[in-house]
Design a protein around this nucleic acid. Structure first.
Lengths: 358, 358
DNA sequence: CAAGAACGAAAAATCGATTTATCGATTAGA
DNA sequence: TCTAATCGATAAATCGATTTTTCGTTCTTG
């Protein structure tokens, strides 16, 4: 009976101590690598650890520290490749340093974002990687500030007066997209986006506009945005085309917009790039297998994750000084969805007529 | 100075106790909803909690329980829509019950899977939702068994002698795909898949084969699988078509296979459904905006997640009895990528010729 | 050779809660 | 009126580690 219980209960540090014939404090020191332990005793501890298959309980171990070896990660969603990769990267990086990553999805809600943050504060996490729903001025960042939490803001941020920030260099990437499209002769371009309140989306917009106008002041740039959800954007786009607007290229500032644009093209029977060109911010695996392959801006997920974790741990270890605002360079992939305007007839003839062998 | 420290340090249960003029035990009882506390004292505790903005430290709170209010979730990856949604659902479900979900990615490695599990065991999680890399017979499930952990296996599993399992009804869905394809007159069908060792992939294969042969014994079914990674599958497929094989439809048993098939079609200039039909297991958002839209089997993510959590918490609360093996029904979406064989010419004419307005 | 420094390890305090044992006061019963 | 039962609350033990304090020994050193 007692045997069974003993088999169920995991060995504690005291079990190791008594097996090794030393005190719990000594065991703790050996495991922590403190050198003031006699080699002989250290060996006995190690043997006991081995024999009992003892492992430190991270929960109990964290009890006595102010900063626990837990890192919180808050993403707007888990469903997209971008944030999925981001969590994977962050998890690996935290693990490397002996920390546990607790990831949570704010589901695109600022209210939920703040609740999650409060819960992470309850856990007394050592630090937080926050990808805010909107931008760095939301209630979540305010909460972190008010409670003296250490953290890094990523993705939908530009800079902050309290936290380090890391994001893709949206403006530079958008300028490159502008060079690409203007270079191919486009003179009427539509930009679609969501949540213009997000600083990064605005940066993407301005980065494009500035570069495009610099290259060709006569260029016409239309902008359609929707503040909240995808559906208004969809109907705005439908209306826009419905009243006869015919831009020769569309630049979507985010993935959902790319999907909306594609489905609208479908509805109208338009093909890329003959009828219209398309470039989207954010790449996805499927974009290179569809026909045509969709041109996209690739965000440097690994660099963002790694830089964010570096900055975070620097702060966790007590670094002071003004917050830094990092921008990581993107890569623009020019694929088949981009062509020159008027290259193909606006009606008739499928994309089939181009040699597809790649 | 002391003031500042006090402002930094979060209030503990003792701070609340002294503010309310009662003992810590009483505070604990009030917060736990024990009724043997005088209403007057309960009110004073509640007031103190309010004034100090006190919140229970979940870490300390969990110290004294054998099963902590933490649920572990292990997924093969976070990058796909399926597992992204799964984690989101599981997180919400755990949260509803006052538990914290700690998710980890095994990155399609059984070794890593076991390591993660060992770490979760260190945390003494109350339960684990494991989506194994291969199947229910891997080292991870064995570890759980050996250490008496409670858990539920999902997705790439059929049934187990120790744990409850929940997965999509792959066989039934595949049979429905078979009915669809055979019903449209296909007599030569190629099935592509990965990791045939995974029980579910085999179930998908057999579910399809059985139904297809029952409907038309003369049907020809070719199968191409690759044990490990995607690349061998890609080259096998290339060889297969290269030596002149011309099935009229392809059924991919998993998402990665669908992508491989599409890119191979691209390379050869084939269009769906005129040149070849395509159906894939696993749906994705992009599949309805591409041209053609890709027919797919939709897995019931929410039902799987919810059923898994129900079963898990039943076990956490001590339920005994033989493990159950649940299969949740899928939905088959017939989209444009599926047509009748010979419907369009095998060479010439794009999919453009079909009215796309949907 | 005695006082002090250095060393190694054990004892005890600590982290922040929960739970059990204990205790005093009030009420009930004989 | 005295003992027993009940009620409410406190003190103390507990969870499993870490860290500080204390305490013998041994080694220096004047």
């Amino acid at each position: 009976m007692a045997q069974q219980e003993a088999r169920q209960r995991r060995p504690s540090i005291h079990d190791v101590a008594s097996h090794a014939g030393v005190s719990a404090a000594t065991v703790s020191k050996v495991l922590a690598g403190v050198t003031t332990v006699k080699p002989e005793n250290a060996q006995r501890v190690l043997n006991a650890v081995e024999r009992l298959a003892y492992r430190v309980d991270p929960l109990a171990s964290d009890m006595r520290r102010a900063k626990r070896r837990i890192i919180g990660a808050i993403m707007p969603e888990f469903e997209s490749e971008f944030f999925g990769q981001m969590v994977t990267e962050l998890e690996g990086l935290a693990e490397q340093r002996g920390y546990t990553l607790v990831a949570a999805s704010s589901r695109e809600s600022e209210a939920r974002e703040k609740e999650i943050l409060a819960r992470m504060h309850d856990w007394r996490v050592a630090g937080v990687v926050l990808a805010p729903v909107r931008n760095e001025h939301g209630p979540a960042a305010a909460f972190m500030k008010a409670n003296g939490m250490t953290g890094v803001l990523i993705d939908r941020v530009l800079s902050d007066d309290a936290f380090d920030t890391v994001s893709a260099d949206s403006a530079a990437a958008s300028a490159e997209v502008a060079r690409m499209l203007v270079g191919k002769g486009h003179k009427h371009i539509l930009i679609i986006g969501l949540a213009e309140g997000a600083a990064t989306v605005r940066a993407r917009l301005e980065g494009f506009r500035t570069q495009a106008l610099a290259l060709d002041p006569s260029i016409r740039i239309d902008v359609i945005t929707s503040e909240v959800s995808v559906e208004p954007l969809r109907s705005s786009l439908r209306d826009y085309f419905g009243r006869g607007e015919r831009p020769t290229a569309v630049y979507s500032l985010l993935l959902k917009g790319t999907l909306v644009a594609l489905s609208e093209f479908r509805r109208r029977g338009w093909h890329c790039p003959n009828d219209i060109s398309l470039v989207g911010f954010d790449d996805a695996e499927w974009m290179q297998v569809t026909w045509p392959a969709i041109a996209a801006v690739v965000q440097p997920v690994r660099q963002i994750a790694s830089e964010a974790m570096n900055l975070l741990f620097r702060r966790v270890e007590g670094a002071v000084g003004p917050p830094s605002a990092r921008l990581e360079p993107c890569q623009v992939l020019e694929r088949e969805s981009v062509g020159s305007p008027g290259n193909g007839p606006h009606s008739g003839g499928g994309d089939r007529q181009q040699p597809p062998l790649s």
